[in-house]
Every structure is written in C-alpha cells, then in structure tokens.
C-alpha cells in the first residue's frame, strides 16, 4: 500500500513537471507569432548578442518588437494567468466554496471602478493602474468587514457581501460611463473593461512581476495549511492551525494577486474559476499539487488565449471576451459531464 501512495504522488509531480515544460514551449512558440517574422536563428542571435556581441543579422525593428512588444506581452499574459488562477484556487479553499473566484469577492469590479474613475479624471496610464489596484484592495477589505459582521454562516455572509459590494462598484462604473466624454473616455473605459493585454510595456511586467511574487510566495508556503482550512474552521483549529491568521494572510495575498493582475490587464474573467477546477480534475484537490498546477496551467491558458486574441483576426479581439467564450462552456462541461462532482 505504501508503494501505491508514493506512486500516485510521483505521478502528480511528473504532471507538474510536464505542465512546466509545456508552458516553456508555449512561451517559445509565442515569440514567433505575430506580424513581424522572426526566425529561430534570429531569435537566438538577438538573445545571445548581449553576451557574444555578434554582428546583427536582423533589423533593429525586429529587436524592438521582440524586447518591447512581444516579450512583455507574453510575460504579462503568463503572470496574469498564473495570478488569477492561483487566487481563485486559494479563494475556493479558504471559503470552502468551489464557486469562489476573484470576480466574486468584488476584487475585479473594484479594480474596474478604480480604472474608470482614473480615465474619467483624465489621469495617466500609471494612475489608472494604481487607482485600479487601490480601489480593488479597498473593495475586498469592505467585503471582508461586512462579511465578518453578518450573522449566521460567515461563508455565505461573505459571498453575499461580495455580491452586494460588486453591485455597488458596477453601479459606480455605469455612472462614470454615463458622465464620461463620449468620444474619448467612453471607448477607453469600455475597452479596459473588456480586458486586454494590448500595449503592455516592460514597466507593466516589472510591476506585475513584483506584486505577484509578493502575493504568491506566501501562498505557496502556506498551501498545506490551506488544505486543512477546507475541512472547516473548528476542525482546522483543533488540528493546530491558527485559522484567523492563515485565513487573513491567504486572503490578503490572493487579493494582491487579483488586484495586480486586473490592474495591468483589465477585466479578464473566468480564468480564476475554470483553471483551478480543470486542475482539480487532473491533480486532485490536495493543494500541495493543485496550487503549482493551477499557477502553471493558468499561465499557459492565458498565454494561448492571448495568442488567439492577437493573431486570429486582423483586428485584435479583447482577451476578456475570449476567456468568457472559452471559459463558460468549458465550465458547463466540467460541472455536467466532467465526471465526478467537485
């Protein structure tokens, strides 16, 4: 019997290694996709020229596209995908609720309100990101405070608080759209709300990379305790887990992940719900394996969807539309025919 369990764990580890390799391959393939052709040898040359000092056999435009357009966009897609699925996977565990997702705690609508407000006030790009981030965090705090004050079942209370605060934030967004300048601001707000990775720059990668690392590392370290949280508050306490502390740290980190993702990419829905569920089917519910799997699959999924979004049609389709079009039917499949109930 002992051999059997070791094998099943080894199999899960192999799956995670496979996912990591797949992601790496996905990144390499994505570099070649786009309007400007780059050959494999040119790519190798551009990357290694910094060390080898080889004579360029490529145009400076190609080099610019690679470093300042394609790479930041690819990395941002991976970071945002990883962050949203990691956050979704944590929310599901901490709230003992398979339907939990970043969209659900008001994090996404809070970020939307912040961005819309910044656009309305005519603030610059950096301020759009900053304001989206701050209002998103504020929204979650509000949801958490209201949720913990509700009588009765705290999990349900939190979900309801999330719904309510989201509705308020959405009302705010609608009002801003109403009063916004019809020719410039309204299209910008609308486009932002649809979610897009267009025009991602290296500074976005830096911002998202740092904030996402700050949010994700504690979660990866805490992931065994999140397992224990999913069996319920009292049982987890009786097993020596400091429930309020672990829960608070997990929520703050997951929210940081959501807010930083949304603030660089706009509203990209479904990833945080669908990817963790897909991974639950593959690696099981143990967060020891589920969380790394969600991070890698989320990154791969959003990268692929973004490739479709920027290459399939002449005019780019906002990625938020695509994630919904792919995510919603897939989720219906998961909850109906995907085998066992969660």
């Amino acid at each position: 019997m002992a051999a059997g369990t070791v094998n099943s764990d080894r199999r899960k580890k192999l799956i995670i290694v496979f996912m990591a390799v797949l992601l790496l391959l996905g990144i390499i393939v994505s570099v070649f996709l786009g309007q400007f052709d780059i050959t494999p040898s040119q790519l190798w040359g551009i990357i290694t020229s910094r060390f080898t000092g080889v004579e360029p056999f490529w145009t400076s435009q190609q080099e610019h596209v690679l470093w300042n357009v394609r790479m930041p966009r690819i990395l941002t897609a991976c970071l945002v995908g990883a962050a949203l699925s990691c956050a979704g996977c944590v929310y599901q565990g901490v709230f003992e609720n398979p339907m939990a997702a970043p969209d659900f705690l008001g994090a996404s609508s809070g970020a939307a309100l912040g961005a819309a407000l910044a656009i309305l006030l005519g603030l610059g790009e950096a301020m759009i990101t900053a304001l989206a981030f701050m209002i998103s965090l504020a929204t979650i705090c509000l949801v958490y405070i209201i949720g913990s004050r509700t009588r009765g079942n705290r999990t349900v209370g939190l979900v309801l608080a999330g719904l309510m605060v989201s509705a308020l934030a959405q009302a705010g967004v609608s009002f801003i759209k109403l009063v916004a300048d019809q020719t410039n601001q309204l299209p910008e707000i609308t486009y932002w709300l649809m979610g897009s990775l267009t025009g991602t720059e290296n500074k976005d990668v830096l911002f998202a990379g740092i904030t996402i690392a700050i949010g994700m590392i504690p979660l990866l370290l805490l992931r065994w305790k999140i397992n224990v949280l999913t069996v319920g508050e009292e049982e987890a306490s009786s097993m020596g887990v400091k429930v309020p502390e672990v829960r608070a740290v997990s929520l703050i980190c997951a929210t940081l992940l959501t807010a930083s993702a949304v603030s660089v990419s706009g509203m990209i829905g479904w990833v945080g719900l669908v990817v963790p569920h897909f991974c639950r089917k593959i690696t099981g519910n143990n967060y020891l394996f589920l969380m790394p799997a969600s991070v890698l699959t989320g990154a791969f999924f959003l990268l692929m969807v973004d490739n479709i979004s920027r290459n399939l049609f002449v005019a780019e389709v906002p990625i938020g539309i695509l994630t919904a079009v792919i995510g919603a039917p897939f989720f219906i499949y998961l909850i109906t025919k995907g085998g066992e109930p969660v």
Partner: peptide
Amino acid sequence: AYIPQAARPVFAYS
C-alpha cells in the same frame, strides 16, 4: 484531538 460526528469536506480528499 477532536473527532467530529461526521466530517463533510467540500472537496474530495483521499
């Protein structure tokens, strides 16, 4: 240690 009447975890664990 505490042994509840029945534990019904939301997620299936081995």
